[in-house]
Design a protein around this nucleic acid. Structure first.
Lengths: 141, 141
DNA sequence: ACTGGAATTAGAGAAATTCTAGGCCATTGA
DNA sequence: TCAATGGCCTAGAATTTCTCTAATTCCAGT
């Protein structure tokens, strides 16, 4: 990961009131590092496995905590596609998703490629916090 | 439930290759019956509890099986809103949802009130099987 | 370096869903 | 109508995903 992004991560953690601990930095590096801007959609289990095989000793509980804290801090976005299967997306810009049911893979759709014609009024006293669009795709063959 | 709907349900089950058993009919009645056309969003647990208190003896496993079979037969539609929380929707027409995070409630949005400006091309070899739009609403106050 | 509060850990616990093996029941064909 | 057949249902165990707890470890400010 670029040095710039690394400092940025530390800054973002501090802003969010999160101490830049060994584990958070390591997980952040795994999430955003190396293949810098690649879109990533990981489950907690996957990230934990990745950490293990990268020699980073971190517990699964911490992975869950960290992913949720990152999500809270808007460094990640959680996408639920099936009961018992949620992904954390490194892309926090406005965008949507293709979901391939057979393989369980997720793919970003830039917001320019899928826009809503009109946004319905939220019921009284509510405000729309987020719009999630999932296009479920069958892979024939 | 209206007699008409009841016969209709038996017909739909047969068409789907499902035997109209005591349990399926009872659950179908709970789902579509009485308050006929009301939109319903139930979890397996909820429906099971409903069945119990209606004096219908049915196991939770059967409720899960039945809900999935009904979904397969397009009598229901499954909506996943959070890890570990999925609803079955009695409305199988094209439509979308408001999700109220605080209360966990789901509300239909008719398809006329929320349309997509354009549909992105699915990746090669895939076809879009379903479009799910969830507007997550914060209830302030 | 020392200390207090936050973070991390392993493991237990919870919650939702699925599986299994055996018994039951709806359908079909005689 | 009746028995056979194959699908269906059940309880409970198992699995999976995620969360909690209590003890330990670590970071930040002095």
């Amino acid at each position: 990961m670029a040095e710039r992004k690394y400092r940025e991560l530390i800054e973002q953690l501090k802003t969010a009131g999160l101490r830049p601990t060994r584990q958070r930095l390591a997980l952040g590096r795994l999430l955003y590092g190396e293949n810098g801007d690649m879109e990533r959609h990981v489950t907690a289990e996957q990230l934990h496995a990745e950490a293990m095989s990268a020699g980073v000793r971190v517990s699964l509980a911490t992975v869950y905590n960290t992913l949720h804290q990152f999500t809270e801090a808007k460094l990640l976005r959680e996408v639920v596609v099936e009961p018992g299967r949620s992904y954390f997306d490194t892309n926090v810009d406005d965008h949507h998703h293709f979901y391939f049911e057979q393989s369980g893979r997720l793919q970003d759709i830039p917001s320019e490629e899928l826009e809503l014609k009109s946004m319905p009024e939220p019921p009284a006293g509510g405000r729309i916090r987020r719009v999630d669009v999932i296009l479920r795709v069958d892979e024939e063959g």
